[in-house]
């Protein structure tokens, strides 16, 4: 029994790693295509049909490129930082039920690595640890732009961790559990949480942009003022790991938002699973959509937004939820 469990878990971990890495690669393709279409361009077209093999070409390029380590960097930390970014994105996905459980050759498969009963807290924690990638990468780089980026990263992640936690607290109060499967079952019975917690949904969504560092809050690696922030000194596959981490994070968040607020996979039927994938696709698309449409905010505006607007709203939301539940 224990061996079977071990083998099953290892298979799940490998599948998640492979699927998320592949999704991260495909994510870059989708991003380039969709941004191109929104800007009346075609995007990658030459490698393969409709440029589909561009992902492979980029991968080959990143793997074979020279790995430059500048003289004055703190070597080990510099090498470690990209791994942290990629690893935390994969680690966080251990507590996510990607699909409803299904039968495969007469064996019941739960598409979740570990249904720990503190799932959401674990996700929040691991996403918080994800801050160490930019932070250590920036501090080890011996570069002023990287240091600025590291400082910004620390500020943004700490601040928006507060908003994420507080906004998610109201749904947790309603469900009474921290497990995402319990969230799903609650919503299958009582309707989607977004209808009773629209404010929490919007707050969580906004904070998700900050946690993944996507465009309206794309300040950690802001190309036009701090070059590439923590990624300035990186090249080759180390830079690629930062990239994979960022896109895996985006996919991961796109799974978490529907699971918490939009009903998850519903009652566990095939339609529910497809609906979950559809919702995930929409949220991922929205990340790209905003990148085409919106400008970045300033760092001080970002902090202002977090502490003076979003956090009070989140607290008021929790108080109102508590009053209603009493």
């Amino acid at each position: 029994m224990e061996t079977a469990y071990l083998i099953e878990t290892i298979i799940k971990i490998v599948v998640i790693l492979l699927v998320f890495s592949a999704l991260a690669g495909l994510g870059t393709y989708f991003e380039r295509k969709i941004l191109a279409f929104m800007q009346r361009r075609l995007g990658p077209m030459y490698v393969g049909p409709f440029g589909l093999l561009q992902v492979a070409a980029d991968g080959v390029k990143l793997f074979t490129k020279e790995d430059i380590i500048p003289t004055n960097v703190v070597g080990r930390i510099f090498k470690l930082a990209p791994v942290i970014t990629a690893a935390t994105a994969f680690m966080a996905s251990a507590a996510i039920p990607f699909l409803p459980s299904f039968e495969l050759f007469g064996y019941k498969v739960n598409p979740i690595v570990s249904d720990i009963n503190i799932g959401i807290l674990y996700i929040l924690g691991v996403m918080g640890v994800g801050l160490y990638g930019p932070l250590l990468g920036g501090m080890a780089s011996a570069n002023k732009f990287s240091l600025i980026s590291a400082a910004r990263g620390a500020a943004v992640f700490i601040s928006y961790e507060v908003v994420t936690g507080l906004s998610i607290l109201a749904p947790i109060m309603m469900v009474g559990s921290l497990s995402l499967i319990d969230f799903n079952n609650y919503q299958a019975e009582n309707g989607w949480i977004i209808w009773s917690q629209p404010v929490a949904f919007i707050l969580f969504w906004i904070a998700a942009f900050a946690e993944t560092g996507r465009t309206p809050f794309h300040l950690i690696a802001n190309d036009h003022e701090i070059i590439d922030g923590f990624g300035t000194e990186y090249s080759g596959m180390r830079w690629g790991l930062f990239f994979i981490g960022e896109y895996a994070n985006m996919f991961f968040i796109s799974f978490v938002i529907p699971l918490i607020f939009l009903g998850g996979f519903g009652d566990g039927s095939v339609m529910g699973a497809l609906a979950l994938l559809g919702k995930m696709a929409f949220f991922f698309f929205f990340f790209l959509w905003t990148r085409a449409a919106w400008p970045d905010v300033r760092p001080d505006q970002l902090m202002w937004l977090c502490w003076k607007v979003l956090m009070p709203i989140a607290v008021i939301n929790i108080v109102i939820t508590g009053l209603v539940m009493m």
Binding site: F37, W289, W294
Partner: peptide, 8 residues
């Protein structure tokens, strides 16, 4: 958002 969507 609408402007970029329209173009797409």
């Amino acid at each position: 958002l609408w402007v970029v969507m329209r173009e797409m």
